[in-house]
């Protein structure tokens, strides 16, 4: 096991940030921690990177205990905190050089590992880090976290505030790093990124809602979801919320995701009901659940 977490709890003053968290990450796995802001993701990352001590429970990273063996962990993990945490007044190359030196290595020594990412920012190597675009900053931060060839990589919300193109590229890079045997623990508030992980833990309010592969998580969704649409979304929402057989009603992009509490639900009944509410252009069709649907079902 690359990471083990056993019954970790952590409170700040009277706020419970984490409550009895347990999970394991296998060697070479890409494990996602999915949850909104304030769910406790950063706190968990800080406990695993030895920056914080849990109130209860134990954890190991790369076989070392996070409290007693913290020095060994600091030697063998790469960490990319939530905000961009590089020196803005140093150039790309100076930043990379600096992190290489404090990890007791050189850029040349581990160039192979970062090469693919670094070539993309190399044209700007004399530019100060503060002047890079969001996507570039993120690539540089990843290079800096990788420069010492860590066994485990901790990425705390690496794609927050990054545009879709850079996000996609970033996940492609993670997949390649994973192939090189690096264990990756990544957190994200974006449910659509969950599908890109091997396994995920859904987390909210300091508690884990579910841990499984993304496929298994959606497969276990208990209901049939219907995409509903009509001429007026707001009225449609109100009508569905007022419908006494509803199980859940959530706006979902251009549709409303609807589940019914009855086992023998017939969409025709719903159409009739909505028409009685003066809605027109009504469409109802079955759809597949997403991670987000599961998350909402669990968090309800």
């Amino acid at each position: 096991m690359s990471i083990t977490v056993n019954h970790i709890s952590k409170s700040y003053k009277n706020v419970k940030a984490l409550e009895d968290i347990s999970f394991e990450v296998k060697e070479g796995e890409l494990f996602g921690l999915i949850g909104p802001d304030g769910a406790g993701k950063t706190t968990l990352f800080r406990i695993l990177t030895t920056l914080l001590i849990a109130n209860e429970g134990t954890a190991t990273v790369a076989g070392f205990d996070v409290v007693t063996d913290y020095k060994k962990i600091r030697n063998s993990v790469g960490y990319m905190p939530g905000r961009f945490s590089l020196y803005q007044d140093l150039t790309v190359e100076e930043n990379l050089n600096f992190f290489a030196t404090i990890f007791g290595t050189t850029i040349e020594e581990n160039y192979e590992l970062i090469k693919e990412i670094y070539v993309q920012i190399e044209p700007f190597k004399d530019r100060r880090a503060g002047k890079l675009s969001g996507g570039m900053k993120q690539k540089l931060a990843l290079c800096c976290a990788l420069i010492h060839k860590p066994k485990v990589l901790f990425l705390d919300e690496p794609t927050t505030g990054v545009d879709p193109v850079s996000r996609k590229e970033f996940w492609e890079m993670l997949k390649r790093l994973q192939k090189k045997g690096i264990t990756i623990l990544v957190s994200t508030p974006y449910m659509d990124e969950a599908a890109l992980c091997d396994r995920i833990a859904l987390i909210q309010d300091g508690k884990i809602l579910q841990i499984d592969t993304p496929q298994a998580i959606v497969k276990h969704y208990p209901k049939q979801i219907y995409n509903v649409r009509a001429n007026n979304t707001y009225q449609l929402l109100n009508s569905l919320n007022a419908y006494r057989h509803n199980h859940s009603v959530f706006p979902f992009g251009e549709f409303v995701h609807y589940t019914d509490s009855r086992a023998d639900f017939n969409p025709k009944d719903l159409v009739d009901y909505l028409e009685s509410k003066n809605l027109s252009n009504i469409e109802i069709e079955k759809t597949e659940p997403t991670i987000e649907d599961t998350f909402m079902e669990l968090a309800k």
Partner: peptide, 21 residues
């Protein structure tokens, strides 16, 4: 709505729909 939990986010969009209506 960046970073908000999915349910709150929907409540937020309901408010937007209401304002628009």
């Amino acid at each position: 709505t960046g970073g908000v939990d999915p349910i709150t986010r929907r409540q937020f969009w309901e408010m937007i729909y209401k304002a628009a209506s």
